[in-house]
Design a protein around this nucleic acid. Structure first.
Length: 307
DNA sequence: TTCTACGATGGACAACATAG
DNA sequence: CTATGTTGTCCATCGTAGAA
């Protein structure tokens, strides 16, 4: 098994992390942030689990497509010789129950039926493949990755893989006969190239520069560090690395703002002298202009998703 | 161990470029 | 013109790696 497209923190989650350390969130945004964070943890767990897939196959993670003006996302795809496996990973924790085809948490709040979500993406995926001249057999699975998940009134549905079934499901996957050829790589490339991009900025809470807390955040625990750049969590960082990381955060949060020495000095809230900031900027980036309109050219690592 | 040299840092200040 | 922001230079201080 080969991972053709690894999983990264999504731009939106990245932005939310940057923002969350610097401002309070309205309750809806906070929930959304926590859900994304939890979902990502689940996907990471799934990635660890999927390392044991030993068949000749290709894995593509986090695919985002648009078919018929509808956007859908797939957590993970495994291309084998005869079958394209689609995995929707859920990191649900605790007790849930089913009434008919309605899903509830034990406290009684209703959640979106993940099976509908799964069927929907299978339909769309099938169509996407057909549009591109493929007619591959698709199998979709809903993977509950968290061992502390339980579903009362669970139906007998082979598309659902509960935590206790993960090992046997893996065995089953590994018994899938599979020998890939160039066509499969072509299919994988097609899928990667047919992706769509969504602006990560649309669904963020409102924020403005003046109301964000300034300073340098520890990349691990996301709390502010003091002038020593030694975090309470034990993480320690070289000055230039810390400043460059902070510039990166600023760049993500304010893609249209010009990067100047003073701006970054203020953003890092005097953790380092303005002279040091300038030196680090000058050592790492091109400078354009002079005086008031002068600024550094800091490349942004994503260019299709901006705005 | 102590000493030394060097690079990184930071303060002060003058010179320069541009917006308004 | 002034205000703002950047650059370059000079110089003192600090921490540390390597020499003595």
């Amino acid at each position: 098994m080969k991972i053709l497209k690894p999983r990264f923190v999504s731009p939106e989650l990245k932005l939310l992390r940057f923002l969350h350390s610097r401002m309070g969130f309205p309750i809806d945004d906070l929930r959304r942030f926590e859900n994304l964070e939890k979902g990502f943890k689940g996907e990471q767990q799934f990635d660890i689990w999927s390392e044991d897939i030993l068949i000749d196959g290709l894995i593509l993670n986090d695919l985002l497509f648009e078919v018929n003006n509808t956007v859908f996302q797939i957590d993970s795809v495994l291309i084998s010789q005869g079958t394209l496996f689609q995995f929707e990973v859920k990191n649900y924790e605790g007790d849930y129950y089913l009434e008919g085809d309605k899903w509830f948490t034990l406290s009684g709040s209703t959640i979106r039926n993940p099976l509908h979500q799964l069927e929907r993406s299978e339909t769309m995926l099938k169509q996407l493949l057909q549009n591109n001249g493929y007619n591959m057999h698709i199998e979709s699975y809903l993977i509950f990755i968290n061992p502390n998940f339980h579903l009362y009134n669970a139906p007998i549905n082979p598309s659902i893989i509960f935590p206790t079934q993960l090992t046997r499901f893996m065995d089953k996957l590994n018994r899938t006969p599979s020998k890939l050829n160039g066509g499969h790589s072509k299919l994988a490339e097609t899928l990667v190239s047919k992706q769509t991009f969504q602006s990560p900025y649309k669904r963020l809470p409102n924020y403005d520069y003046n109301r964000l807390e300034k300073g340098i955040c520890c990349p691990h625990c996301r709390t502010f560090v003091d002038v020593t750049l030694k975090c309470k969590c034990g993480f320690e960082e070289a000055p230039s690395a810390a400043i460059l990381r902070s510039i990166e955060e600023f760049r993500w949060l304010f893609p249209d703002e010009k990067i100047t020495t003073n701006r970054i000095y203020e953003w890092c809230k005097g953790n380092k002298s303005i002279r040091t900031i300038r030196r680090i900027l000058a050592n790492n980036f091109e400078y354009e202009g002079y005086g008031k309109p002068g600024h550094y050219i800091v490349p942004i690592e994503f260019n299709r998703a901006v705005r």
